[in-house]
């Protein structure tokens, strides 16, 4: 019987999203991502939103479409405690499928609440998307308490228990896609709103001055940088170029090596020079790191020493 091979485009699509991979990279990402989010949101407290002025209430579309209620302060207190426990359990890989789902559902509600009061911020949107991806992923198959408990209860010998699978590839690629869409949107937004004037005018130099008063960035270096208009034009051009070309990182390893560190540097520079600190966006970059290879590299000298000795 003749085997039907998929269309080359379909094969590329499937190869990109579902190429079999070992479970380690996704598991390390799970540990680091949920650990970082727990640390970043440890002091997160939205109990006070319940008595904010009703006149400020302008629900975002999910709150309006699903008629999500504004819980009372005690209920919000319980929900945010449950969310933080779920984040920790997800990090540890304990009842992973349930804890990652709870992290997403509770995170969607709790992180979404403040955006209903007159201003939608962008700092946590990517987190909600990554929580959704991780809720559907098989991220707890290794390096988790679930795996340890399963091994102990079945008295299996220690060792790799999960074979390479596309299950460990598509969640990583989805996070890449989410990041690519963020930067693409920012680049397209600048061009459609302002065109090349965003680069050619004094906009960036004035922004570096203005935000000293409006956003109080971490440093006062912005005004110093604003003294060199040519440098500001070059930085503005590099920003738009990087944002528009970021999706290339999905397909090209070379582009990835250039664009991902550039985007991280840009985010850090925005925090230092302009003000908004997108720590959450920075956190998501850990999904670009091939942790399986990193761990192999870290382990290799020890193995070499043992075999040599």
């Amino acid at each position: 019987m003749r085997r039907i091979s998929p269309h080359p485009l379909a094969a590329r699509w499937l190869g990109f999203w579902f190429a079999p991979a070992p479970p380690t990279t996704l598991a390390v990402c799970r540990i680091l991502f949920f650990g970082a989010i727990f640390a970043q949101y440890f002091r997160f407290d939205v109990r006070g939103v319940g008595d904010l002025p009703q006149a400020l209430w302008t629900p975002t579309w999910p709150f309006a479409a699903f008629d999500l209620p504004l819980a009372t302060a005690p209920v919000l207190g319980w929900l945010q405690s449950a969310w933080k426990v779920a984040l920790l359990m997800s990090c540890a890989g304990l009842v992973t499928r349930v804890s990652t789902l709870a992290s997403f559902v509770l995170g969607f509600y709790l992180l979404g609440l403040p955006h209903n009061f007159g201003k939608v911020n962008h700092d946590d949107a990517i987190i909600v998307l990554v929580l959704a991806i991780m809720a559907l992923a098989r991220a707890g198959d290794v390096l988790s308490l679930d795996a340890t408990i399963a091994r102990l209860s079945s008295r299996r010998p220690p060792g790799p228990v999960a074979r390479p699978s596309g299950e460990y590839t598509w969640p990583l690629r989805c996070v890449w896609l989410a990041l690519a869409l963020v930067y693409l949107a920012a680049g397209v937004g600048k061009l459609t709103s302002s065109g090349l004037e965003w680069i050619g005018s004094n906009n960036l130099a004035l922004l570096l001055l203005r935000t000293q008063y409006e956003y109080q960035p971490a440093t006062a270096w912005g005004p110093w940088l604003a003294r060199w208009p040519g440098l500001c034009h070059a930085l503005a051009a590099a920003t738009i170029l990087m944002e528009l070309s970021y999706p290339l990182a999905l397909a090209s390893r070379r582009a990835r090596l250039l664009l991902v560190p550039s985007a991280v540097a840009m985010q850090l520079a925005i925090g230092l020079l302009i003000g908004p600190r997108f720590y959450t966006l920075l956190t998501c970059n850990l999904f670009w790191v091939p942790w399986e290879s990193v761990l192999a590299w870290v382990r290799s000298p020890a193995v070499t020493r043992r075999s040599g000795g």
Partner: peptide, 15 residues
């Protein structure tokens, strides 16, 4: 459409 966004922060030219 939170959590999606056009990320239009600082997109307008302000001279």
């Amino acid at each position: 459409h939170w959590p999606f966004s056009p990320y239009a922060m600082f997109a307008d030219v302000n001279l």
